[in-house]
Every structure is written in structure tokens, then in C-alpha cells.
Amino acid sequence: MIADGAIPIVPRGVRLHQDRARNRWVLLAPEKTIALDQIGYAILSEVDNRSEFGEIVSRLASKYEAPVEQIRPDVAGFINTLAARRILEVI
């Protein structure tokens, strides 16, 4: 699990890109391309290299009118999966 005070960071060289041909967002990283669904894009849209994990979860819970307890493990798993591949960092 990720601590509420941890800050997810998009490292240099990683960026969001809109794949207009397939009508979806992708994460472009060195030698990797990751396709996102709408929820994944919504999560990454909240990652501004300043917001703490707890703040991101709270904003998403408000936006989707869903309980924090439901959203937190999904967002943590999502971020951890990307962090394991060095596509995100958590400080």
C-alpha cells in the first residue's frame, strides 16, 4: 500500500500522449508504450508531481462519487504497477 503522504512523480522522459487513431491515451516512456483506459487517464491526470497520494484518492473519490475505501486500493495498485516498471516514481 502507498502512504497517504507519498507523492507520485512522472519522471523525465515519460509523457501522456493522445492516440487519436485509436481514440485513447497512452503513456510514452523510453522503449515502452502503455495504453490507458478512461480511469487510468483520470488517475494520471491527477498526478502533478506535487499532490500527495491521499489528496489524489480524495479528489478521485469526489469526482466519481465513490468511497475512498473502494478507490484507494485500485489507485495504489495502478501506481505500484507503473512504479515497478519505472514509469512512475513515488517519493
Binding site: 515502452k32 480511469i39 487510468g40 466519481y64 465513490a66 478507490i71 489507485v75 504497477t81 516498471r85
Partner: peptide, 24 residues
């Protein structure tokens, strides 16, 4: 739109590999 577990799929050589999501 309702909340759902997000999906991550790695695109590699034209193939898409599920990294994270309901089916991973």
C-alpha cells in the same frame, strides 16, 4: 462515469499485454 478498476496494457511489437486491471 462510474469508478472501475483501471486498466494498463503494454503495447509491445503490436501486441497488447495486460499489466493491471480486472483481468490481470
Amino acid at each position: 462515469m462510474a469508478w472501475a478498476k483501471p486498466v494498463l496494457r503494454e503495447i509491445d511489437c503490436g501486441m497488447e499485454i495486460n499489466m493491471y486491471g480486472p483481468d490481470s
